Amino acid sequence: LHIEINVNGLRIELHNVSEELAERIREILEKVDDREEARRLAEELIK
C-alpha cells in the first residue's frame, strides 16, 4: 500500500503501511508546529 500524506506543507510518502498507521502518523505530525521537526519525527516513525 502506498499512501501520501500532507502535513503543514510537508509531503510524506509511506510505503507498505496500513491506512490506520498512516492516519496515526498524520495525526501525530499535525501536532508538531516546526516543519523540520515534523520531518525528523516522520523519519523516526517509519523506520
Rank of each mutant, 00 (worst) to 15 (best):
L41R: 06
L29P: 00
E13A: 04
L14C: 05
I12G: 01
L29T: 01
D34C: 01
K47T: 14
L45F: 09
R39K: 14
E13K: 04
E4K: 05
D33S: 14
E44W: 11
E43Q: 10
E37L: 11
K31A: 13
R24K: 14
H2T: 15
A42M: 15
E30Q: 12
E4N: 12
I12W: 14
I25N: 00
G9S: 02
R26S: 04
I12A: 02
A42C: 06
G9I: 01
L29S: 01
H2K: 11
R11Q: 09
R24H: 09
H15L: 09
E37R: 05
E13P: 08
D34Q: 03
K47L: 14
I5H: 02
I3F: 12
V17A: 11
R11S: 13
R40L: 11
R35D: 09
E43C: 07
I25A: 01
N16A: 07
E13F: 12
I5Q: 01
N6Y: 06
K31D: 09
I46Y: 09
L21P: 00
A42H: 01
R39N: 08
V7Y: 06
E19A: 15
L29R: 00
N6Q: 10
E23N: 13
L21H: 04
L29G: 00
A42S: 06
R24Y: 09
A22L: 11
R35A: 14
R26N: 04
E4Y: 07
R39P: 01
A38M: 11
A22P: 01
K31T: 15
D34Y: 02
I5L: 12
N6E: 15
L21N: 03
I3N: 05
H2A: 11
V32E: 07
R11H: 15
I28D: 01
I28F: 05
A22Q: 05
L45N: 01
K31P: 02
E23M: 12
N16Q: 06
I46C: 09
K47I: 13
I12T: 02
V7M: 08
K47G: 12
V7E: 05
L45W: 06
R40N: 08
I46S: 05
I28T: 06
H15D: 08
I28Q: 05
E30H: 09
E37I: 07
N16S: 08
V7N: 05
N16L: 08
E36L: 07
D33E: 15
A42R: 00
E44L: 09
A42K: 01
E27R: 08
H15N: 11
H15Q: 10
D33M: 15
I46M: 11
I46E: 02
A38T: 03
L14R: 00
E27W: 09
A38E: 00
R40D: 04
R11F: 13
I28R: 04
H2N: 13
L14W: 07
L10Y: 15
L29C: 01
D33A: 13
R39Y: 15
E43T: 08
R40T: 06
V17E: 03
E36F: 06
H15F: 13
V32H: 10
I3C: 02
R11V: 15
E43W: 13
I25P: 00
E37A: 09
E23K: 12
R35E: 13
N8E: 05
I46R: 02
H2I: 15
E44D: 11
V32L: 10
N6F: 07
R11W: 13
H15T: 10
N8C: 09
E27Q: 11
K47P: 03
V7F: 11
N8P: 06
L1S: 13
E44H: 08
E36S: 07
N6S: 09
A38R: 04
L10D: 05
E30K: 12
L21Q: 09
A38H: 01
L10K: 02
E4T: 15
I5S: 02
N16V: 06
K47W: 11
E43F: 13
L14H: 01
I46K: 02
N8R: 03
L21W: 08
G9P: 02
I12F: 15
H15Y: 11
D33P: 14
